[in-house]
Design a protein around this nucleic acid. Structure first.
Lengths: 204, 204, 204, 204
DNA sequence: TCCTAACCGAGACGGTACGTCCCGTCTTTCA
DNA sequence: TGAAAGACGGGACGTACCGTCTCGGTTAGGA
């Protein structure tokens, strides 16, 4: 949101604020925060608009000014809560993939993730997913770009989808969670990265 | 749930049929069928008990005689709809893994899967997942067993979780679906299997 | 509504009670009673569907099973509360008109009437009034009939609308209430009847 | 409230006009006009502050600068719309009563009256009615005064409430409207006046 | 001519009630 | 006892208003 770009000269022209009382930015945050807390504490079912509004100290109508439906609010909360920070890439693909794997493992292990994931999946599968997914997990595209560009890439197969490594790592972690109720151990995660990196190498 | 009772010999002793009119087995099927169709056509939200009962030509109370809650019914429908058939293993791990990848790709591409998956995930993440997951995808355990036992295994790393290959394949397919809205192409799926199998190989 | 006509012989045929659990008659009464009490105690504004349901010890949805909107419920309550009992006519028009005047005076003096009247008027002015009005005040038609038929009528003008006496008496009482906040005194009411009866008499 | 102040001499003292921009008188009128039109066209329910403000081309807050509540606005609109003009009295009571009856008949026949009356009645029955009623229908008091003062009065009963004739005429017209949905015919109105005037006459 | 208080448009906001929809249970009749 | 039908308690949803508030901008007078 580079909305407050504030160009130097034409400021008065460009930033014609809309008429009427401006929305309180803090309210947006309070509502999202309340929704995220409720999701983590009470689960999807009890994360009611009423409950969110009450916890945020806000009127129900105020929530509906910002998100048109409960689903939209939940999706926004999910994005906010699960959005992975961009971490600095070292330039070494294997290292960066391992970092991503560790971070994903940690994120998926949170109770919050368990509570939110179904709603998140629903959102991804019913609307245009690409944009939203990349918003949550921007590293998918960044690692794909690195795989193509990195010098190390010389040793890797160049006929595979560049997002494949990320999909394998994150997907396997997710599937392990769905199948067993828990994320893989740290050691297993490390070995998984080895397997994927080895698998990518060009064969003699 | 003595649902799988009724062995031939001890019938009179063990399954002293409860008094009164017996339940119509066909009704069970009709309800599940209706639920699956509604999920595929109208989505999770519109798959209400009322709608399912109406489509099955059955009273609402009749549904509640069989499943205690809407969630239970939806979970049953998901299992019924997505349950992967057990396919014969050839004994060659790479081949069998490729077969599983192709089948998964097909299953996940169905609109039905998109509709059901969130509910399925919810069920897996809130109850004990293991039992249920293996019911839907029994091949996870079978492939893990094969990886251990297969003669070919001699060439593979033996320090990784035997379910890892399955988790990588299925997980990557799932993650690709969530991220892009579509399953990977058939060629990409094939290459993905190669990467995983290569990655498993013992290094020199 | 001669719906419960109950013919002797064909009882089983005619009164095929509708399928399903029958509505509890007592619930109808409890809801109306609660509405009437609330109207009298708290006024139109506070007679909420929620409040009525709570006082009747009933779920909100149960109210909506019987009346489609709040207005419909209020109209029903008004009819129920203000419905004037049919009193026996003596055959002497002047006497019967005086009786009607006294009863009307008493009815309009109740706080309940003040609370209900606006809603009642709204109902009368927006739907077909005749049927409803006669349901509340059946004596309007009965007195009109008596005016035509009574032997005494010989001395009265026969060119006026037979409902005129009733309209004059009730209307004047109502207008006095609207203008002053109170019904006329008992003595004024008596004199008012005299004026109307005298006015009806044929002039020499 | 001190709206009708402004005596000539003390002008500078009493009406020290408040500082700041004065209110636009035209806005008052536009709002009332919009309210009246909406009442006539769409009814009580749809005459919301929002709708009135929109039609008057005015902000909602501007309405609240003038009337504290919706009810107050509606009451003002009702007074404005239904306020009967003072007509010149001829001095002949029977003639003046007949004039009043004709005017009332015309006023009550308007769709506007049907729409406003419930709200008007609510206002009259919940606040102090006398002042308000006389504001709308000043002729009630004027006719009562005439009845007492008029020379013709010699022939009339002097033991009845002087507002009785007015109440009878207006009340009967109103009651006829409530009962049948329409005002009495012009001929019926004329006969009604005869009945009332005859009834008032002193008996031999 | 500038100042200042009030007006005015626009819309956020806390509330409250509405009418709808669904859940899971209960009550009736019939087979 | 199964099953159809529908009443019922309960609760969340999304909408529509109400009356208050907070912005920005305007506009008449008085200093």
């Amino acid at each position: 949101m580079s909305r407050d770009a504030a160009p130097a000269i034409e400021a008065t022209v460009d930033s014609h604020r809309p008429a009427g009382r401006p929305r309180d930015q803090a309210t947006d945050a309070a509502i999202l925060q309340a929704a995220i807390e409720l999701l983590a504490e009470a689960g999807l079912r009890k994360t009611t608009i009423d409950a969110v509004a009450a916890r945020a100290g806000v009127a129900r109508a105020t929530v509906y000014l910002r998100w048109p439906t409960r689903d939209a609010l939940l999706a926004a909360a999910a994005r906010q809560a699960l959005g992975q920070p961009i971490y600095p890439l070292t330039g070494d693909f294997a290292t960066d993939l391992a970092t991503g794997a560790r971070r994903a493992r940690t994120a998926l292990a949170q109770p919050l993730f368990r509570a939110i994931f179904p709603e998140l999946a629903r959102g991804l599968l019913t609307s245009s997913p690409a944009a939203v997914y990349d918003e949550i997990a921007p590293n998918r595209q960044r690692l794909a770009a690195e795989l193509i560009a990195a010098p190390e890439a010389a040793g890797f197969r160049d006929d595979v989808d560049p997002t494949l490594p990320f999909d394998l790592i994150i997907g396997a972690t997710l599937n392990h969670l769905l199948a067993t109720g828990d994320t893989p151990s740290e050691a297993d995660t490390a070995r998984m990265v080895e397997v994927v990196v080895d698998g990518l190498r060009r064969r003699a």
